[in-house]
């Protein structure tokens, strides 16, 4: 941890705490996300994943603690300012603009994203490029409301990527998808990482997370339980106990 850093990390969370009423949903959580990683966090229901995610995404204010990106304090930034700082997000429940076409959805992101494209035609061109990259170009003129759930989820990611982020925050993008669709979605995450965007990924599904992530943070009762590479996490007795409710001894997967 204390080794000399060539560059400050793309995301640095320092002692983040959030109270609701008297209850701490997140307590004293710290971690770092390095550039070029897919960083995942998991935890049982009510572990504080969503709260932590919302704070980083600027949707909630923490009670205390700091969030930094490349050394810059971004704790108080609003979602639209985060986009300008190179951080985009997807929503757990997809939120396409239903009265717009797929292209218009993405064009909006091109306009308002980090590129700040003001010209209508340049934005359209940019949006088409991104749509093509995600293999969605055939749906460009379709209304966003008629897409299947799988495609709506892909649109959600496409749209976020059209803001040209350095860090993409993904909230449970595989919920409600079939096995095949999940595998495809995870593949998109890898391609996004290989394209140069760091990914922070929250998921309920342990299998999906361990399959795709380079590094994983495990939350339990709002606290950090464990952190490390997927192998390390899967071997960690504390994690196994939190998930399966009994001490290690038996095999984790059954």
């Amino acid at each position: 941890m204390a080794d000399a850093k060539p560059k400050p990390p793309i995301l640095e969370v320092e002692r983040l705490t959030k109270y609701f009423g008297g209850l701490a949903a997140v307590k004293d959580v710290s971690f770092e996300v390095r550039e070029g990683q897919i960083f995942g966090f998991i935890g049982p229901n009510g572990a504080g994943k969503t709260t932590l995610f919302s704070i980083i995404a600027g949707a909630l204010k923490p009670s205390s603690g700091k969030v930094r990106s490349r050394g810059r304090d971004i704790t108080a930034l609003k979602p639209f300012q985060l986009v300008q700082a190179g951080i985009a997000r997807t929503h757990q429940i997809v939120r396409p603009f239903r009265e717009m076409t797929v292209l218009e959805n993405v064009k909006l992101a091109s306009h308002f994203g980090r590129k700040n494209v003001t010209s209508d035609s340049a934005a359209e061109e940019h949006a088409m490029q991104i749509l093509t990259w995600f293999g969605m170009e055939t749906f460009a003129q379709k209304s966003a409301s008629i897409l299947s759930v799988g495609l709506q989820k892909r649109l959600e990611i496409t749209r976020a990527m059209a803001t040209e982020p350095d860090l993409l925050l993904c909230d449970e993008i595989c919920g409600g998808l079939t096995h095949v669709e999940t595998a495809a979605m995870l593949d998109w995450l890898r391609r996004i990482r290989d394209r140069g965007t760091t990914v922070m990924y929250v998921e309920h599904d342990v299998k999906a997370i361990t399959a795709v992530c380079d590094r994983i943070l495990v939350l339990n009762y709002g606290r950090k339980l464990s952190e490390g590479a997927p192998d390390h996490i899967q071997q960690d007795p504390a994690v196994i106990e939190a998930y399966l409710g009994h001490p290690p001894g038996r095999r984790q997967e059954g």
Partner: peptide, 9 residues
């Protein structure tokens, strides 16, 4: 919210 998440103020 979705608009703000894509950079609209």
């Amino acid at each position: 919210d979705a608009a703000a998440g894509l950079g609209v103020n």
